[in-house]
Amino acid sequence: MKAELSPRTRTALYGLMCVLLIPFVFPTWWMVTSSIKPISDIFAFPPQLIPQSYDWTTYSKVFELQPFVRQYWNSAYIAALVTVGTMVVSSMAGYAFARIRFPYANTIFMIVLLGLLIPSEVTIVPLFQMFLKAGMVNTHWPLILVPIFGAPSVFATFVMRQFFVTLPAELEEAARVDGLGRFKIFAKIALPLAKPALASVAIFTFLHSWNLFLEPIVFLSSAEMFTLPQALTQYTDAYGGPMWNIQLAAATLTALPVLIVFVIAQKQFVEGLAHTGLKG
């Protein structure tokens, strides 16, 4: 694309990128290292970039002060359910909007797209009242049902539709001639070919659910029911001040697994999300 870079420009570019990297990479490093420093060292001056002594008891406190395993499980199973549920709902709806001719399809599609325009924050008050009436406050139902069927899944439906639109019509026609009905065409032809789109839907849906914060603090009130983002903020002392080392340890436990999966599958992550955004 461009002329070959001279060695000098090359060095300058590497230097610039390394400086720019600091705010992206350093916080994660600081989180992990501070979480294993003794409490006396975490605000030490000069700052210890590499811990000089270790205190692993912080990690046991994470589990003593709160039902952290339970909270971890809450976040994990909710995110898993929401991800799978969204994949099912959005791939079906996206397929129908892209490939099936039915009356009022365009009008219905516009109505569904309204979900993109209405942030879930707008509807949080009535949603709370609705789930309150249904006796589902302080249960996980709101955190599961709303993302799968409501506004958050609309973007996934849109992504799936954009993918299915590009599927050659002749493939489906061949399948019809081969004896498949609509449901089988969807399950055996369209869906297996939609793996890349499904992967990006899975990634951003998972991250969205994993990071959900407003909804849990609105809907959940007991520590047993909390999800991770909410739980992290609960490690406070008697005066409401954060217990930094324990918070950081819990944050590390929350962040690291996803980071590790990302490093292993970073190509799928980056390309999956780029793919989505280009089309969305």
């Binding site: 720019l20 990297l21 992206f24 990479v25 916080p27 994660t28 600081w30 989180m31 501070s34 991250l207 994993w210 990071n211 914060f213 991770l228 983002p229 909410q230 992290l232 903020t233 954060p242 918070q247 950081l248 944050a251 590390t252 929350t254 962040a255 996803v258 980071l259 999966v261 990302f262 970073q266 992550f269 980056v270 999300l273």
Partner: peptide, 16 residues
């Protein structure tokens, strides 16, 4: 590396 904060849990990132 530039992309990595996207996958770090939002509240964890904010806490640090």
């Amino acid at each position: 590396l530039f992309f990595s904060p996207v996958v770090v849990s939002l509240v964890a990132w904010t806490i640090v």
